[in-house]
């Protein structure tokens, strides 16, 4: 099994994700440069946090056109597990794999703090290790994490059980307290919190570790 980690110019959590998956959990990884056209034989894809292409124009707006992401789109359409963390979530919404958009935090501050979250796993494969309604804490670190969509879109997401991660304290003003959403099929997850920063007791708990380890049962 191998997990592909997408690397854009400006990605800065790619090595953190590798450290969490490989260093902490022993799951093999491979970096996937944005300019390459295919994914190779990876079993899952993680789009990590950072500032792809300097976040120019809008967060994730330029990354969407990277050659690699055409392959990610096909991989996701075939049911492959895709996880977008922070900037990766922004990329997934810009490329239309997930609905909505991530906008400037309501009070403008870059927020870097542990965020209490409620998990509603539904059919999301990435969250199979969590119980419905479970409360966990994951670090957030973003300036543009306020989830935005029209009320009817939010109602549809809620009705389908696609709002899988909610803030308990809504630090950034997201509609519906949305911290993470999945696609209807449950194989694509976008989330602003950083599970890779909670995969070792020395760096803020283990609540993110289960998200990453669930992959092992899911794809094998």
């Amino acid at each position: 099994m191998s997990i592909g980690i997408v690397v854009f110019p400006g990605s800065n959590c790619d090595r953190d994700v590798r450290w969490a998956l490989e260093g902490c959990l022993g799951l093999p990884t491979r970096f996937l440069w944005h300019g390459q056209a295919d994914l190779g034989d990876v079993d899952a894809v993680v789009i990590p946090g950072g500032f792809s292409y300097g976040d120019y124009l809008r967060c994730g707006a330029i990354a969407r056109f990277a050659p690699l992401l055409a392959a990610v789109r096909e991989f996701a359409a075939a049911g492959g597990p895709v996880l977008g963390i922070c900037n990766g979530f922004q990329v997934l919404t810009e490329m239309g794999l997930l609905p909505g958009a991530l906008t400037r935090n309501a009070r403008l501050h870059f927020i870097c703090e542990p965020a209490p979250l409620l998990v509603h796993p539904g059919n999301c494969g990435w969250l199979g290790a969590y119980a419905e309604g479970e409360r966990i804490v994951l670090p957030i670190a973003h300036g543009e994490g306020r989830f935005q969509c029209e009320p009817d879109q939010l109602a549809a997401l809620e009705a389908n059980g696609q709002v899988v991660l909610r803030y308990a304290n809504n630090p950034n003003g997201s509609v519906g307290d949305v911290a993470g959403i999945t696609n209807a099929e449950g194989n694509v997850l976008g989330m602003m919190p950083h599970p890779e920063r909670a995969a070792d007791p020395s760096t803020g708990g283990l609540d993110g570790q289960r998200l990453l380890t669930s992959l092992r049962a899911w794809v094998s």
Binding site: T103, R104, N105, A106, R107, L108, R146, Q148, E150, G173
Partner: peptide, 10 residues
């Protein structure tokens, strides 16, 4: 119009 503009408000 429905989208909050925090930078505009500031």
């Amino acid at each position: 119009p429905s989208v909050l503009d925090p930078a505009g408000e500031a």
